[in-house]
Design a binder for these strands. Structure first.
Lengths: 160, 160
DNA sequence: TGACTCATGTCAGGATTCTGACATAGGTTG
DNA sequence: CAACCTATGTCAGAATCCTGACATGAGTCA
């Protein structure tokens, strides 16, 4: 179907490859999480809470790369199903610190082994040197993209 | 807000970093495409058609990492607005080869310079060696993820 | 030839996510 | 203190995308 022999520079674009890799990772994670009745955002939320207990709704949203509205409905579901708990009143400000329940922790453990297998498969065939190089390169990309996304292109940034 | 001093291994996870980088890239692309009234999928479709004229709806969908239903409604819009053309009848099979109109090509040119600036910003601070390493590593990830996503975990695969 | 399988285009319905908006809490600055 | 700004939680509506389904065309194989 439609000779791909043209072979243009789509495969040499780092942006396209980044999207392709991210898409493949998401698909693989969805495949292993589906049997557990869990979505990727679902899992991300639980994993974030396990590693940083007491995160607020907005912080979880930033960590899972969704809007705080989306995270809010997810948290409401998780709370109703007994996987997380939030205090009825904010101890300070308006932020409600969220925590995993024992049930949530058990649910997460199942998912963690599934997701870890995906990450191990992704890293298969890469040397330790390549893995650390990948870490450094991806961090560089994130940093460069965030730098100029809001106005000043290449300016020193003050405070943080 | 919520001391991040805990510092767990979220920042050392290649999967998380991959998602973070992809999310940052998408946000940056949306930011520069919005003034042109164009979405990322919109642009991806036009770019694919420029590099591989005559792609079908399903092929475009795979190239842009969306379902063919999603790409179909996008193509219908683009066709109505005069950016692409599709024959009324399929020359062979059911696939309708899609092509850019001159109007579509002009629209794409604007977007291309905007997107290229984002990609250049993303690559800023990386050496040529690092860029080729990134290409190789990302390709490896995609390949490893796709390999075991459908059944056989670590088996030899026959005929491609 | 006929049955089977696969890919494609398309329609309809539902699920997910986002955009817009509002009220409130806390910090900052005059 | 008062005005302002930022961040947060939450509600409502809209946009986006996907899942399910159907009919059709082409290739495969007995």
């Amino acid at each position: 179907m439609s000779q791909n022999g043209v072979g243009v520079d789509l495969e040499t674009s780092l942006g396209y490859l980044l999207k392709e890799a991210s898409s493949a990772l998401r698909a693989a994670m969805e495949a292993v999480l589906r049997p557990l009745g869990m979505s990727v955002t679902h899992y991300s939320c639980l994993e974030l809470l396990a590693q940083r207990p007491g995160l607020s709704n907005s912080e979880l949203a930033r960590g899972a790369f969704v809007t705080r509205q989306t995270m809010n409905v997810l948290l409401q579901n998780l709370e109703r199903e007994g996987y997380v708990t939030r205090p009825a009143e904010a101890p300070v400000g308006k932020a409600l610190p969220t925590r995993l329940t024992p049930s949530g922790r058990r649910s997460l453990e199942e998912a963690t082994v599934a997701v870890r297998s995906v990450e191990l498969r992704m890293l298969a065939g890469m040397t330790e040197t390549e893995r650390s190089a990948a870490l450094r390169i991806l961090r560089s990309m994130v940093h460069s993209l965030r730098d100029g996304s809001d106005g000043a292109p290449l300016q020193e940034r003050r405070k943080a």
